[in-house]
Design a protein around this nucleic acid. Structure first.
Lengths: 338, 338
DNA sequence: TTGTAGGCGTTATCAG
DNA sequence: CTGATAACGCCTACAA
C-alpha cells in the first residue's frame, strides 16, 4: 500500500523514455512501437498506476472545449410524503441502469420548491452534465433555475412551462379510462382524494376525473373532491366527511391513501365493494394484498426512468430530442370494484 | 446565454490587473486593496464568472496532495426485493441531509454481490472520497473491494469482517425483545419467515429468534423456520405449509411479507389475532392500516443514515471513528398480537 | 517511432 | 498591496 501517487513522468523517468511515449502507450492513441508499449503497460500493471482524472479532464478541455463530467443529477422532492412511495426509488433504478450503459453515473439531490441549494451547489460546481427532475410543479423553481443556467435537463411528468423537455406516462388517458370504467358500473357519487395542488400530477388526475364524467354527460360534485391532503390528520377529517355523505365510490390519487381508507371503512362497518367501490390512480404491490385487493392503475416506473435517462443523455450529447408521452399503463382490476 | 467560458485571465486582462490579484480577490486569501477587490467582484457578478473546479482541484492538489471530490457514494443492492421497501430511500434522505451540511454531495450506484462494475467505475475514476454500503452480506464483495483499494467506507448493518467501520441499529436486542414479548403471551409454535441467508440482517434476526426462545428455556422448531423466501411463489408455498401446521404465531422478518400473510389467512378463514398472532421485525406506515394493524419494530432509518454519513465524513477527514450500535428502536404494539 | 515544448485554469511563492 | 512565475498531471501539435 505505497501511498505514493505515481505519474506518467515517474514512469518515463524509470523507463528512460519520454512522457509523450508513456501517454501514447496508455491512451492507445498515436503510433507507438509494440515493444515500448509492452514495457510501459508492464510497469503500469506492476506499480498500479492510475491516471489522474482531474489533470486529464483539464488537458482534454483545452482541445475539445469539453468539460463533461459524465454525471447526471437526479432531483428528488424532499417532502415527507414522497419518502413513503416507491415511485422515486423505481425511477432511479431505471435511470441508473441506462446511465451505466452510456458510461454515466448518477448524483442524487433533494429539492423543495423553496429550497434548491443542494441542486445549485451541484450545478455551480460543475459536478453534472445535466439533470432529471422527478416531479413537476405548478410553480417549478428547480426547472426555472436550470433553464436560466442553460443546463440540459428533463422533467418526469407533464409541465405547463414551454420548451422544457419532458417524459411522462399517459396519466391523463389512464385515469380517464379507469374513471369511465367506474362510471360504467353505475356509480353516481364518487369521492376523490388527492395530494398537493402544486403538483402537476394532482391537476392532471383531477382533470381526468372531470373529463371522464363529462364524457358521460355527468357532473362532478365539488363537495366530494378532497385535495391538498398531505398529512394523516387531513386524511382522517376528509374520510369522516366522505363517509357521512353517502358516496358509492372512492378514488384515491395515490396508493398511500388506500390503507387508511380501508381501515376507516372497516371500522365504520362499511363493506368494500358491496357498499362502496374503491380504486387508486397508482398501484403498488401492497394493493394486491389488501383485503379486499384494490383496483389500480399500474405504470412501469422503471421503464419511465430508463426512457428519461436516455432522453437526457441524448440531449447532453447534442442530439435533438423531443418530449414523450409513454403508453405505459395497465388497469389492474381487483375485488374492490367488483 | 453567452456560451463563452470566462477565466480568471480574462478578468485580469479586462481590468488591467494580474491574474494573481484576481485570484486573491475571489478566494479572499492574501492581502488585497478593498477598491481592487470590489472592482473584481463587480466584474465577476456582471459577467457571471464561475471558477473552473477542475483546474482548481488540480492546483489544490499540488499544495495539499489532496485529491478530494466532496462526493460520497451510496451503494444500493440492486435486487428486486430491495426496491419495494422504503428503508433504502429513507436511509439516503438521512445521508443526504448530513452530507449537505458538510458540503458533500451524494452519488448513487447499484451493486450486486456478483456485479460491482458500477462501483468500480466510480472508485477508479476518483469520483468519490468514500462510500456507504447500505446492506451487509455474508460474502461481501463490495466491502472486500473497497478495503483492498484503501477507500474509506462505512457499512450500514453488522458484518463478520474485521476492521470494517459499521453503523447499525440494535437489531439483535430489538428482535429479542419482540420475540420475548410474544413468548410471554404464551405462544408455543411460532413460524418465522425471512429473506436471503446471505444478508447479515437475516442471520441476526434468526439468531435473535433463537436466543429469545433459549432465554425462556424453549426450543425453536426448525421445521417452522422459512428462510431464503425471495419471491412470491416461495412465499405462497411457505404459507401453505405454515397454515397446515397448526402454528399459533407468525413472525415476518420484513414488512413486505405481511400483506400476503394477511390475505392468505383471511382466505383460509384464519382470524388474527384470535387464531394466530402476527408480528414483523420491520415496521412501515402500511402496517398501521392493515386489518388488523400489525405489531412491528420501528427503527428510525433516517437517523441511521444521518449517523452513517457523519461517521464516513469524519473518517474521510482523518478523524478516528469507531463502529456504532444505535439504540434506535421502538416496539409498536398493535392489534395483531392482542 | 519517439521526443520537445507549450498550455488547460488555478493557486502559492517570492520578489517588488 | 500587487505582479511575474512556476507548478499540479496530462495531452497533442510539431519537430526530429
Amino acid at each position: 500500500m505505497s501511498g505514493k501517487k505515481i505519474t506518467i513522468s515517474d514512469i518515463a523517468k524509470a523507463l528512460g523514455i519520454s512522457k509523450t511515449t508513456v501517454s501514447r502507450a496508455i491512451s492507445g492513441k498515436g503510433r507507438i512501437g509494440p515493444g515500448t508499449k509492452d514495457k510501459v503497460m508492464d510497469y503500469v500493471e506492476k506499480n498500479n498506476y492510475k491516471p489522474n482524472m482531474t489533470a486529464k479532464a483539464l488537458a482534454n478541455y483545452k482541445y475539445t472545449g469539453d468539460h463533461s463530467t459524465h454525471n447526471l443529477a437526479v432531483v428528488w422532492p424532499d417532502d415527507y410524503s414522497a419518502m413513503e412511495i416507491p415511485f422515486f426509488q423505481k425511477l432511479i433504478v431505471g435511470i441508473s441502469e441506462i446511465a451505466a450503459n452510456y458510461g454515466y453515473d448518477v448524483m442524487l439531490t433533494m429539492a423543495a420548491d423553496d429550497n434548491i441549494t443542494g441542486l445549485k451547489r451541484i450545478i455551480e460546481n460543475h459536478k453534472v452534465d445535466g439533470a432529471i427532475l422527478t416531479r413537476t410543479l405548478v410553480n417549478d423553481t428547480p426547472a426555472v433555475y436550470l433553464k436560466e443556467r442553460g443546463v440540459p435537463f428533463v422533467v418526469v411528468g407533464s409541465t405547463d412551462y414551454q420548451d422544457i423537455l419532458s417524459v411522462d406516462n399517459d396519466n391523463l388517458d389512464a385515469c380517464i379510462e379507469l374513471v369511465e370504467y367506474l362510471l360504467g358500473k353505475g356509480l353516481k357519487r364518487m369521492a376523490l382524494i388527492g395530494g398537493s395542488r402544486n403538483h402537476i400530477i394532482t391537476r392532471t388526475r383531477f382533470r381526468a376525473f372531470r373529463e371522464a364524467h363529462e364524457k358521460l354527460g355527468l357532473k362532478v360534485d365539488d363537495g366530494l373532491v378532497y385535495l391538498d391532503i398531505d398529512n394523516p390528520t387531513k386524511l382522517d377529517d376528509a374520510l369522516q366527511d366522505i363517509l357521512s355523505k353517502k358516496v358509492d365510490g372512492i378514488v384515491c390519487m395515490d396508493d398511500g391513501f388506500v390503507g387508511e381508507v380501508l381501515s376507516k371503512c372497516s371500522e365504520a362497518g362499511i363493506r368494500i365493494p358491496e357498499d362502496i367501490k374503491l380504486a387508486s390512480f397508482y398501484d403498488s404491490t401492497f394493493l394486491e394484498n389488501t383485503i379486499p385487493p384494490v383496483t389500480a392503475l399500474r405504470f412501469n416506473d422503471r421503464n419511465l426512468g430508463a426512457v428519461t435517462a436516455s432522453s437526457l443523455i441524448r440531449a447532453i450529447e447534442g442530439e435533438t430530442v423531443s418530449s414523450q408521452m409513454l403508453k405505459n399503463h395497465e388497469i389492474m382490476l381487483r375485488k374492490s370494484t367488483e
